[in-house]
C-alpha cells in the first residue's frame, strides 16, 4: 500500500481533496437558493403584469449576457465600496467581504438567470390541452398551477436544468480567481496552480484537478437523472439523461 500512496498521482488526489470541498461547497450552497429564485423569475417573465415581466426579462438578459467573471468582480467591488459606509456600521463587514458568502451570492444571482430561462422555455411548451382540461374541470388558478403547470414545467425543464447545475459547478472554478484567497482556502484550480508552480509538472496536477471535476460532474448527472426518472415516471418511454455535451447555455 505504501508504494501506492507515495505515487505522485495518489498524493495529488489526497492533496486536492480539501480544495475540491470548496468547489462542492460553492455549488451546494448556490443550488437550493438559485432554484426557487429561478422559478420565481421564470413565472415573472411569463406573468401578465407588465412591470414584473419586464423586470424579470431585464434581469435574465443582463445576467445571461455578461460574463460571470465580470459579475464576480463587480459585486465584490460594490461590496467593497459599501464597506465603510454600510457594512462597518452594521457590523457586517466580516460577512459581506467573505468569499465564502459573496461567492455563492453571485453564483445564485447568475444561475437563477440561466435556470429561469430554461424554466421559462418549459413554461412555453406545456401542452395546451392539459391546461384547457384543468380549466374545464373548474380548477382554481392555484389548483391549475399545482396539478398541471408545475409538474409539467419541472419535467420539461429538467434535462436543461441538469446542464445548468453542472455548468454552475464548473463556474465555481473561477470564484477564487476573482475573490481574495483567505489563508489556505484554495479551490481545485488554485491549488493545482500552486502545485504547478512548485515543480512545473503541468500534466499531473491539472489532470488530477480535471479528474475531480469530471467525477463530481458525473455524480451530479447521476443524482439529477434519478430525479428525472421520478419526474417522468408516469410516461411509458423512460427518458434517460445522457452524458452528452450540450451547447445550450
Amino acid at each position: 500500500m505504501d508504494w501506492l500512496m507515495s505515487t505522485p498521482f495518489v498524493q495529488d488526489i489526497v492533496i486536492l481533496f480539501k480544495p475540491a470541498l470548496y468547489n462542492i461547497y460553492f455549488a451546494l450552497v448556490s443550488i437550493p437558493f438559485g432554484f426557487p429564485l429561478a422559478i420565481l423569475l421564470a413565472l415573472g417573465k411569463n406573468s401578465r403584469n407588465r412591470l414584473i415581466a419586464s423586470f424579470s426579462k431585464v434581469y435574465i438578459y443582463a445576467f445571461r449576457g455578461s460574463p460571470l467573471f465580470i459579475q464576480f468582480f463587480m459585486f465584490y467591488s460594490i461590496s467593497l465600496a459599501c464597506n465603510q459606509s454600510l457594512w462597518k456600521p452594521l457590523g457586517l463587514d466580516g460577512l459581506m467581504l467573505n468569499p465564502l458568502f459573496i461567492g455563492p451570492l453571485v453564483l445564485i444571482l447568475n444561475t437563477s438567470a440561466y435556470a429561469a430561462e430554461i424554466f421559462y422555455g418549459a413554461l412555453q411548451t406545456i401542452p395546451k390541452g392539459e391546461i384547457e382540461a384543468s380549466r374545464a374541470l373548474g380548477m382554481t388558478k392555484w389548483q391549475e398551477f399545482r396539478t398541471t403547470t408545475w409538474p409539467n414545467m419541472l419535467r420539461l425543464a429538467w434535462p436543461g436544468y441538469t446542464n445548468e447545475v453542472v455548468f454552475l459547478f464548473h463556474a465555481t472554478a473561477i470564484v477564487y480567481f476573482t475573490l481574495p484567497v483567505i489563508n489556505d482556502q484554495k479551490d481545485l484550480l488554485n491549488k493545482a496552480g500552486e502545485l504547478f508552480e512548485k515543480d512545473y509538472n503541468l500534466f499531473l496536477h491539472f489532470s488530477v484537478a480535471a479528474l475531480y471535476f469530471l467525477v463530481i460532474s458525473m455524480i451530479l448527472f447521476y443524482l439529477l437523472n434519478l430525479v428525472n426518472k421520478y419526474l417522468n415516471r408516469h410516461l411509458k418511454v423512460r427518458s434517460n439523461l445522457k452524458i452528452k455535451p450540450s451547447y445550450i447555455r
Binding site: 472554478a173 473561477i174 484550480l189 503541468l202 480535471a210 471535476f213 469530471l214 452524458i243 452528452k244 455535451p245
Partner: peptide
C-alpha cells in the same frame, strides 16, 4: 473530444 467539455470547466483548459 466532444465529451470532454461536458465534465471539465473551460477555465481549466484555458489555463492548461
Amino acid at each position: 473530444y466532444t465529451t470532454m467539455v461536458r465534465g471539465i470547466p473551460d477555465v481549466l483548459f484555458l489555463l492548461f
